[in-house]
Lab assay of single mutants.
Amino acid sequence: TTLHFDLDGKKLQYTGVSEEIARLVEELKRRGVDLKEIVRILEELLK
């Protein structure tokens, strides 16, 4: 799965993300978590 974000005018793309992580990101968005925080979490998970 590939995730795309537009953060402060920067286009971020994460490829090869598992379905689980993609679902987690969608859930965080639904809960109103700040996009910067979501990206920070995502980068930690993908290390």
Rank of each mutant, 00 (worst) to 15 (best):
R31Q: 15
I38L: 08
G9S: 04
F5M: 04
R30G: 15
V39A: 03
H4F: 11
R30N: 13
E44R: 06
V33D: 08
L45P: 01
L24C: 07
L3I: 12
E44C: 12
K36L: 10
R30P: 00
E20T: 10
T15F: 14
I21Q: 12
R23Q: 14
G32M: 07
G16R: 04
D34Y: 07
R31K: 15
V33W: 09
L28P: 00
L3C: 02
G32S: 06
S18H: 06
E27F: 06
L42Q: 00
E43L: 05
K36N: 13
K11H: 13
T15Q: 13
V17W: 01
K11F: 09
E19V: 12
R30T: 14
L45G: 05
R30S: 13
G16S: 06
L7A: 04
L12A: 04
E43R: 03
K47Q: 12
Q13E: 15
I38G: 00
E44Y: 09
D8E: 10
G16A: 08
T2S: 08
F5Y: 03
D34E: 13
H4D: 13
K29N: 11
E27Q: 07
E27G: 08
E27M: 06
E20L: 04
E19F: 09
Q13S: 14
A22R: 10
S18T: 11
L24W: 08
A22C: 11
T15L: 09
S18A: 07
K36I: 12
D8Y: 03
G32C: 08
L7N: 04
K10E: 13
E44H: 12
I41P: 00
R40G: 14
L7C: 03
E44M: 09
R23D: 13
H4Y: 12
S18C: 01
K11Y: 10
L35A: 09
Y14G: 00
Q13T: 14
D8W: 02
I38S: 01
R40W: 09
I41F: 08
T1K: 11
L46C: 05
V33R: 06
G16I: 04
L3Y: 03
R23A: 15
L46R: 03
R40P: 05
S18L: 03
D8F: 03
L24D: 09
L24P: 01
H4L: 11
L3H: 02
K10I: 15
L7W: 06
L28S: 03
D34V: 10
K10Y: 11
E43Q: 06
T1R: 07
E27D: 15
R40A: 12
D34Q: 11
L42G: 00
L3N: 01
T15H: 13
R31C: 05
T2G: 04
T2D: 14
D34C: 06
V39M: 05
G16V: 05
L35K: 07
V17T: 02
E26W: 08
V33H: 08
E37S: 09
L46V: 06
L12K: 04
D6P: 00
H4N: 13
T1F: 15
F5L: 06
L46H: 05
R23V: 12
L42V: 10
G16T: 04
E26P: 01
E20H: 10
K47N: 11
T15D: 11
K47W: 11
G16E: 08
K47A: 13
T15C: 05
Y14M: 03
K11P: 12
